[in-house]
Nucleic acid binder design. Structure first.
Length: 297
DNA sequence: ATAGGCGCCTGCTGGC
DNA sequence: TGCCAGCAGGCGCCTA
């Protein structure tokens, strides 16, 4: 099950923008089932009549800015789907929120099988800003400040996998792209952050950005649940180097991919390209060219 | 202060 | 064939 991480959320946001921006919310319907971020009945009346000005992403969050300074913020959790649909389309099971839009008979629908996600309303921009400040959400993973990132690794004995998953350190990374970027960087996921040289830290930052941008170009990864804003699946799952490939040959060296458990998450890596010993870790950036990929299959 | 573990939640899978 | 334990994991909360 591919969980929505940064590339998937970015795809949803890009898909939704043209259909949602400039439209007015004319109705709000909530299911009776409780979401992890519970929907307040008071929010519906606050939303009706407001126009969605912009839709953008922050980490794994989707922010819809409305007129009057208020905002509607979504988190997809593990199985959330936020799509724009014709109001005539049948409502699929596990639809928890429906926002009727005008002009046109379109609906913004929030579907979430496991209900780990949800939405919340902020009546003014300061309230929204405060929410994100309190959550301590870290910077976006693109163009990470070199000194900030090196410091985050140097100061911790947590393993690299745990650091990447920590939304306070860097926003938007989940289990798939943590594993994929560690492979790209040739770094063993279990290595303590403090064991990394500044060069290794920089390599990991570059690999993270590379992998995320590549996944965005492929509209994210779909294993089961994830779909973009139009309900279409992503394609990046066919390009996983290590994630869910345990036992299969490494794309680069053919060694079987290993699976372990780190930071409470299944973790996939190549024991040869990502050696556990720090002395062997200073390797060249891993190739991701299609021929290497073909050779690995 | 920090890190690790647990529970929430449903659907799928593999073993019996 | 049918049942059920185990697993998947983002995130908030609790504990050591």
């Amino acid at each position: 099950m591919a969980v929505p991480e940064l590339p998937e959320v970015e795809t949803v946001v890009r898909d939704l923008r043209p259909g949602v921006q400039g439209r007015r919310i004319i109705s709000v319907t909530a299911s009776s089932q409780r979401l992890r971020n519970p929907w307040s009945a008071a929010w519906g009346p606050c939303l009706v009549g407001r126009i969605i000005r912009t839709v953008h992403r922050r980490g794994k969050w989707i922010l819809c800015e409305l007129n009057g300074g208020s905002s509607l913020v979504f988190h997809l959790g593990m199985t959330g789907q936020l799509t724009i649909r014709s109001a005539a389309e049948p409502v699929s099971p596990h639809t928890h929120l429906t926002f009727g839009l005008s002009p046109g008979s379109m609906e913004l629908r929030y579907v979430d099988i496991r209900r780990f996600g949800g939405a919340r309303f902020f009546s003014d921009s300061r309230e929204c800003e405060r929410f994100f400040e309190q959550s301590g959400l870290g910077p976006e993973p693109f163009n990470l400040d070199r000194h900030y990132w090196a410091g985050c690794l140097r100061r911790t004995d947590r393993c690299l996998k745990a650091v990447l998953l920590d939304q306070r350190v860097v926003a938007g990374v989940g289990n798939i792209y943590a594993d994929e970027s560690l492979f790209e960087a040739g770094l063993y996921p279990g290595r303590p952050g403090s064991s990394c040289t500044p060069e290794e830290a920089q390599r990991l930052a570059r690999s993270l950005a590379t992998v995320l941008k590549r996944a965005i170009r492929r509209r994210g990864a779909s294993i089961r649940n994830y779909v973009g804003g139009f309900g279409l699946r992503g394609k990046y799952q066919t390009e996983f180097r290590v994630y869910q490939r345990s036992g299969e040959p490494c794309w680069r060296c053919q060694a079987p991919i290993a699976a372990i458990r780190l930071a409470g998450r299944s973790t996939h890596y190549c024991p040869r390209c990502q050696p556990a010993g720090a002395a062997n870790a200073n390797r060249a950036l891993l190739s991701s060219n299609p021929r290497a990929r073909a050779a690995g299959r």
